[in-house]
Simulated scan of single mutants.
Amino acid sequence: MTTPDSVVRALAEPARLRAFAAVVLGAATLADVAAASGLKAKDAATALRKLREAGLVEGDPARPADLTPLAATLTDPMPADGLAPFVRGDKLVSLPVSHERRRKILEHVASQAFVPRTYYEESEVNERLKAWCDGGEVDHVTVRRYLVDLALLERGGGLYQAQPLPM
């Protein structure tokens, strides 16, 4: 997910800022972005790739009218569940600093990835968490440790058991 820090990092480089501005103003192909931003096609392509990785642009610039900015999502109201900007769909993008918010996010991940009172081998826990962490800022090992530390997963005898969430 896009966080304020990741937006600032992504747009701090002048070529990416120019490419992003071109997309926001309607450039829909790599050629459009290059022309509107004054960048060489290679530089525009690199900038767009970085912007896609940062979650600020989606689509394929090689296909006409397929490139769209995700800037609108940055101004959307935060959902009442409090998961944004840390969870996007079934992906964990980052973890909040606040202990209470981090716990809420990790409870959500645990409730979606595991069935309470079910035992899992470490390899299966890792695979389930890798799916959640793919493309985010947090690795699955860190998430697994937090889940154990917060007693959302219990570890013993080489197995992990998902715990029921408090009501």
Rank of each mutant, 00 (worst) to 15 (best):
S37V: 00
H140N: 13
H108F: 13
S111T: 04
A35Y: 07
Y160T: 03
L165T: 02
A151K: 13
D32P: 05
L150Y: 14
A131E: 15
D81Q: 10
V57Q: 04
R128A: 13
K50I: 10
L83T: 09
A80N: 12
G156R: 05
L152G: 01
G135M: 08
A44R: 00
N126Y: 02
T118G: 03
V115Q: 07
A62E: 15
A62T: 12
A41L: 14
V7C: 13
A62D: 15
V8H: 08
R49C: 00
S37M: 02
E122H: 04
V7N: 04
P116F: 01
R18W: 06
L159R: 13
A27W: 01
V93T: 08
L129P: 00
P96K: 01
L92W: 05
L17K: 04
E127Q: 12
A44Y: 00
L92T: 03
A21Y: 02
T142S: 15
A80T: 15
F114D: 02
D149Q: 14
V8S: 10
V87H: 01
R52W: 13
A28R: 11
L152K: 09
K91M: 08
A62I: 02
H140W: 14
A34T: 09
A54W: 03
G59Q: 11
R145M: 12
V125K: 08
A15S: 12
V148K: 06
L95T: 04
Y119P: 01
G157M: 08
R102Y: 06
S94P: 03
P4F: 09
H99F: 06
L30F: 01
A34E: 03
M1N: 10
A21I: 08
T29H: 01
A84H: 14
A10C: 11
R52A: 15
L159C: 03
M167L: 06
S98A: 14
G158Q: 06
T29C: 02
V87R: 07
D81S: 10
D90R: 14
P116N: 04
Y146K: 10
A35L: 13
L51I: 05
E124H: 10
R16P: 02
L11R: 10
V93E: 06
L51C: 08
F114P: 00
E100K: 08
R16N: 03
S98R: 12
P69V: 10
A162G: 12
L129M: 08
